[in-house]
Design a protein around this nucleic acid. Sequence first.
DNA 1: TCGGTAATTTACCTCTTGGTAAGTTACTGC
DNA 2: GCAGTAACTTACCAAGAGGTAAATTACCGA
Lengths: 192, 192
Amino acid sequence: MPRVHREQQILGAAVEEFGRHGYAAASMAEIARRVGVTKPLLYTYFGSKDGLCTACVDRIGPQLLEAIERAMASKPPESGLPHTVLTALFQALEGQRHAWFVLYDRTLPPGSEPWRAARRHREAVDELAAAGTAALLHAQGNDDARDADALKHIWTGTVSALLGWWISHPELSAQDMSARCARLLAAIRNGA
Amino acid sequence: MPRVHREQQILGAAVEEFGRHGYAAASMAEIARRVGVTKPLLYTYFGSKDGLCTACVDRIGPQLLEAIERAMASKPPESGLPHTVLTALFQALEGQRHAWFVLYDRTLPPGSEPWRAARRHREAVDELAAAGTAALLHAQGNDDARDADALKHIWTGTVSALLGWWISHPELSAQDMSARCARLLAAIRNGA
DNA sequence: TCGGTAATTTACCTCTTGGTAAGTTACTGC
DNA sequence: GCAGTAACTTACCAAGAGGTAAATTACCGA
């Protein structure tokens, strides 16, 4: 099998493994086993566990960023921004639902290379969210930067929660999730 | 030092370690080092890593449950239920902000004893949240059980996000957080 | 004073895991 | 056909993890 193809195959398995179990609990041998290959191949292709994890992060980060940017640019006016972004995320993550948690993995060793890479990509994603939260607060006369930052965290926490819930309901499609989120967001808006 | 006292000391360090790094990345030797004690003592007192982690979970679970129950029972009418619960959580977790993530640790080995214990306590906590989400949806004519379940996840995700944000702002007190959340919840209510 | 027990450590074992060196297979261009 | 290279495996190493047996210290009651 040609190298580039094999690399993509490995990355797919690695994203699933890192996302499902977290960095520390993910095992190189297990990733190799899932691909049907032996460990040294992973090391000749990606150098180290850190290298493979960083490659995963560098693959997922831009995917998500582009999905969100595209969705925000072509936002249908009848739908709210949060729902638009969620729909785009569900579409981008269908087939690799664990990928989100590779980026938002609290167990990455602080200071390590994958940690820095993940933080970098998260910041890019979060920047888009930050614009939304700051605008929402500003419209209500609140210009506290920390409030906007905390609200941004609530948003990403909500996304994480929804993706976690989606993972535990494998039979639901991205469209199902999108429709459900439309209801839930409306409910929050109307009655929190 | 008497055993019961030492056990509490160990539990405190272990909660911090497990909560901060997750089960897999947490190290028994490191926990021992932080307490200023050697590894075998941990094993004579708690049997195994699983045993220690389960003890942590069994300590935190009831603490949180009681804090939430007490808050819900004595809810001041002028404040919303979410804010009441958040305030109680901040108070209960001041001084052990990582504890929440011991209970909500996605890296616990599925099927293991700490995993089962954490799930049990989470269910007890979530049951209280479920009542709230189901009521909110029911008031709007939505009786979909899955919607209520997903909304419950959004709620716990929001709590996780706020605690994560609090951890990255160590200088803020529980009261600071409570006040901030009052603003944020109002902002969400008014303008999502 | 002495025996027993609780608290704790030293030194060790074992197993897993990340990581590597060397060899093997198989294709490709000349 | 054959050299060379890309794809891949076997067999192994070193370090760190969880875990344990045995020894030590210190206290307390008889």
